[in-house]
Nucleic acid binder design. Structure first.
Lengths: 228, 228
DNA sequence: TGTACATCAGTGAACGCGCGTTCACTGATGTAC
DNA sequence: TGTACATCAGTGAACGCGCGTTCACTGATGTAC
């Protein structure tokens, strides 16, 4: 950007930025190598100095998108007060994380879709083939969810027996909602109904994990998790 | 199929069948008009006598897929005994429907993906533009879900206040699970873990809607409302 | 400080791909009288 | 029962599309001595 030299200086970054813009505007389908090069003011061939190909470029954008999603969730969690009743805080964190997830999807539909697009770049997993190690361990958002659920158990609102695989259940609810709202049959619903569906789903998750032990609407402790 | 005449006789059906095979094997991307025509033993142009174009063909397959999904759920529901405790039956029906949904997705991943693929054929909605009428009202599976949830309320295991929008929450959980398992980050999990994730998610839905009032595993005769 | 040379980061033309779709057409079928 | 004609349901060649990718190349930069 700064220098007009023959050598671009930071073409890799520029291409990734352009590709990110494409993804945000049009989803993963819109991540077209030639267009990204065009926007970077460079021939399509130049991209091959920095990326193995289009799939590689898409994979970078995907990782970015996952990172931003994790950031959004982290930012939402940071707003939850740490003091006060442990149970209220744990429940509030679960709510906040879920809401941030869906908000990201609704605010950045193209970006969200790209985050969960299968790229062809995963055949390069190497021979170590650790079956225990999916990409899940690298997923910051997923680890945050795990921590939140641990908090539900340690604060006593969720039985330890219910803990195993709970992250998959919670994630499914919130992810399914996002998918149905963005691309699915719910996309034509009135916005107010969409909002209601979001609230109802978040409540389903909390109630489902705590079997009704959490009382989000009761004005009991200090931290009030739900705006009403 | 029967006649080898110049006029095919049932080309529309044959094309739709071929397109369905393509979708089942490779998802919506694989629904290629030319390939469907090839399999029907006919030139690509012939398809235009029966369909407006590729999008139209895809839309037919999508509707078929939704129909089959509804059938599967209906078949699973038909196995639930109608006699006995109303609450147990209502809960069992919810479980069965959810499991059938996920089973269909796992058994027929391409078909399932096609059922929820956005086709370009929906700009043809006409001018009436009833905002209340999404395609949801036509969705048999969705209506079945509504009936199941009504059963939870009428049998007393789910408060009537919790009923609004509950179908979106339940659907989200089960749909998200399917998506994460098929195309998402859960697709590399061990099958046993996948099964556990399914069971855990179904339990989340039931617990979330009944706030623990349902006791699916307890061998008691009737509904025991106390979560402990 | 100059110079020779390797390397780096870009260019631009070209290819193949397979698709969806259009076009002018033709052989088969149905119908009116 | 025959015949003229409209219509129906196919054919096959062709086009344009925009992409990802390869190729041989060249100008700019860095480095050894």
């Amino acid at each position: 950007v700064s220098t007009t030299s023959y050598h671009h200086g930071n073409l890799s970054q520029a291409l990734e930025d352009a590709a990110t813009d494409l993804a945000r505007a049009g989803g993963p389908e819109a991540v077209v190598l030639r267009e990204a090069a065009r926007r970077a003011g460079v021939s399509a061939t130049a991209a091959y100095r920095h990326f193995a190909g289009q799939q590689d470029l898409l994979e970078r954008v995907k990782q970015r998108a996952l990172g931003v999603l994790a950031e959004r969730i982290g930012a939402a969690l940071a707003l939850i007060p740490r003091d006060g009743d442990a149970t209220d805080a744990a429940v509030a964190r679960l709510f906040a994380a879920g809401r941030a997830y869906v908000d990201f999807a609704r605010t950045e539909p193209g970006y969200f879709a790209t985050a969960f697009r299968r790229t062809g770049a995963e055949a390069a997993e190497g021979g170590s083939a650790d079956p225990e190690h999916s990409e899940l361990g690298d997923d910051t958002a997923f680890r945050m969810l795990g921590t939140i659920l641990d908090g539900l158990v340690s604060s006593g609102v969720m039985p330890a027996d219910d803990r195993p695989h709970a992250e998959y259940a919670a994630w499914s609810a919130v992810h399914g909602l996002a998918v149905l709202l963005l691309d699915g049959p719910l996309r034509h619903m009135e916005p107010a109904d969409q909002d209601a569906a979001v609230e109802r789903t978040l409540r389903l998750v909390v109630d489902g994990l705590t079997s009704g032990r959490a009382m989000p609407d009761a004005p009991t402790g200090s931290a009030a998790p739900d705006p009403g």
